[in-house]
């Protein structure tokens, strides 16, 4: 009787250990499976690009070396993007003097709608039109929004995808601005 109980208990305990093991493995493997291609760009020089913005002014990433760059990929049809953009405009005003430069890349197919949104949201930073080449350069922009933070040394130091925690992003910007 007792030995039966012990055998059963032992079986349950082993099942528990097995479940714990499986859970741990899943926890470990999960983030790897969900890893984004763009993560491989982190801590490396941000891919160089130079394009004209909507006003015709040349935007060359190289010329922003020494500043912290927030590079945001968005589109007019992306609802979370529309929520972020006014915050970015406010940050450009607030942190611009301390060295922040926001550059936004619209992944729309239609420039006219981007212009409308730029005017409507009164965006105070350059807006350039993106394409598949620029998307591929930045690890594949296959979902929006995606934001990179580029340090004063030109290295991509953070990547935010989807509906980002804007408080966390702002804290990171402040920390990067403090670095000289």
């Amino acid at each position: 009787m007792i030995s039966n109980y012990l055998t059963r208990f032992s079986f349950i305990r082993h099942r528990g250990i097995l479940a714990g093991f499986v859970f741990t493995v899943l926890l470990g493997v999960g983030p790897l499976r969900a890893e984004q291609p763009g993560r491989s760009l982190l801590h490396k020089p941000a891919p160089q690009f130079a394009r004209k913005d909507l006003s015709g002014k040349q935007v060359d990433l190289r010329t922003f070396r020494g500043r912290v760059v927030l590079l945001n990929f968005w589109a007019t049809w992306c609802a979370p993007c529309q929520q972020e953009l006014p915050h970015f405009a406010a940050w450009q005003k607030q942190y611009g003097p301390a060295g922040l430069q926001i550059i936004s890349v619209a992944m729309d197919d239609d420039q006219a709608m981007v212009r409308t949104t730029e005017r409507r949201l009164d965006l105070n930073f350059p807006v350039i039109m993106g394409d598949e080449r620029l998307g591929t350069l930045y690890g594949g922009i296959l979902g929006l929004p995606i934001t990179y933070l580029i340090g004063r040394d030109g290295k991509a130091l953070a990547r935010f995808e989807g509906e980002a925690d804007l408080d966390a992003m702002e804290n990171k910007i402040q920390a990067l601005l403090r670095r000289r």
Partner: peptide
């Protein structure tokens, strides 16, 4: 969806059919 995204990567055999939100 977006034509830019389609050009970046799409499912083999799929066809771009226009952004249905517009």
């Amino acid at each position: 969806g977006s034509h830019i995204f389609y050009a970046e990567a799409h499912i083999p055999g799929s066809v771009y059919a226009g952004a249905a939100a517009q």
